[in-house]
Amino acid sequence: MITLKDVKKIFSSKSGEVTAVNGINLEIKQGEIFGIIGYSGAGKSTLIRMFNQLEKPTSGSIIVDDREMATLRGRELRLARQEIGMIFQHFNLLWSRTVRENIEFPLEIAGVAPSKRKERSAELIKLVGLEGREDAYPSELSGGQKQRVGIARALANNPKVLLCDEATSALDPQTTDSILELLVDINERLGLTIILITHEMHVIRKISHKVAVMENGSVVEQGDVLTVFKKPQEAITKRFVSQFTEPEEVKETGEHLIEKFPNGHVIQLTFVGEGTEAPIITNVIRNFDVTVNILQGKISHLQAGAYGTLFIHIDGEDEEVQHAITYIREQSVGVEVMANA
């Protein structure tokens, strides 16, 4: 569906050239929700704006639905952009137009007849849950309602791709979740490919199938979300993942736990999918002559399943402890021994 090959974007400034995007390679399949995460200045906003050519790449190839976007001009580019909807952090609504008129605006530009525009806007108002607010102005709407208008407007021309540029970062947590649930619903109903950029790992783990992590203009890590959560490779990825793998109430480091439990073994267990519900610790206590203390843990629910971490302290004869650890590994649970007696 979408292929990026060695995409670069270099800006010229008084102090010299600035490389905002540096050699990005991505493959995004049709119907995927693909998340791009990074902190401010990572280059993610510049990257997403190159998908629809709001920014022109300095070099490289951007292919969307078998079309090389960088080579399109004039009418061809306008038609291609109609198939790529976009929603923004600050909504970008027309404040002098009602909800219905905002949604109809791209259809008006495309030359769609008034009766068809009205019919399409009515469909979209129902889809995004804004029935009864058709004649309201943006100033009369909540943040979540404004973003729903933005989503409906982006869908007006029946796009194949939806770009989301920090679409939830201006919203409170509860409203963010409702917008993310709407995006998942749209993805499933319409088979729409969704690309979202964010600095919030909550957004990625809530709805994304795959994720790319950006830092200093480059993608430093990418893969399906469960794999990235289970085995983050880069320091920045570990920093993002730790927001959900470390218990918020405790957040003690392995070193602190080792200091508190100098004898025995401090072990970090990683569970994915069905493993989060298996009675593994109970079975260890029943079947092996060891004592087990649960120190801290947390389960996060991802789009592709559940992911959890658990820190335990296990003590006993060394041979028996090793048997217990072997048993845990055989249950497809990640095991990291953080301290040995």
Score class of each variant (00 low, 15 high):
Glu27Trp: 09
Thr309Leu: 11
Thr193Leu: 08
Thr291Ser: 14
Ala306Lys: 14
Phe244Gly: 12
Phe240Tyr: 15
His90Cys: 05
Met338Cys: 11
Thr168Ile: 07
Glu131Cys: 04
Gln147Met: 04
Glu320Met: 07
Thr291Lys: 15
Met201Pro: 00
Gly60Lys: 12
Asp224Gln: 03
Leu77Pro: 08
Gln174Leu: 13
His265Ile: 03
Arg189Asn: 10
Pro247Leu: 02
His301Val: 15
Glu104Val: 01
Arg205Gln: 07
Asn52Phe: 13
Gly38Val: 06
Phe261Ser: 13
Gly129Phe: 04
Ala136Asn: 09
Glu140Thr: 09
Leu180Asn: 04
Ala167Ile: 06
Arg239Tyr: 12
Gly129Cys: 07
Glu166Val: 00
Lys29Tyr: 03
Leu163Arg: 10
Asn157Cys: 15
Glu27Lys: 10
Val112Leu: 10
Asp135Glu: 04
Pro138Glu: 03
Val272His: 09
Gly85Leu: 05
Lys206Pro: 07
Arg78Ile: 06
Ser40Met: 02
Glu27Gly: 05
Gln243Arg: 02
Lys146Gly: 02
Pro114Gly: 07
Glu274Arg: 12
Leu47Thr: 01
Val290Thr: 08
Val266Gln: 14
Ile312Asn: 15
Asn92Gly: 09
Glu234Ala: 11
Glu108Asp: 01
Lys5Asp: 02
Lys260Phe: 09
Lys126His: 14
Gln89Gly: 03
Gln222Ala: 06
Ala122Cys: 02
Val219Arg: 08
Ile258Leu: 08
Asp65Thr: 02
Glu55Ile: 09
Ala42Val: 06
Glu123Tyr: 05
Ser142Phe: 00
Lys230Ser: 11
Ser121Trp: 00
Met50Gln: 08
Gly334Ile: 05
Lys206Ala: 08
Asp165Val: 01
His265Ser: 11
Ile24Leu: 09
Glu234Ser: 14
Gln222Ser: 14
Tyr327Gly: 03
Ile103Lys: 11
Arg67Val: 08
Ile314Trp: 14
Glu336Gly: 02
Met201Arg: 10
Ser59Lys: 06
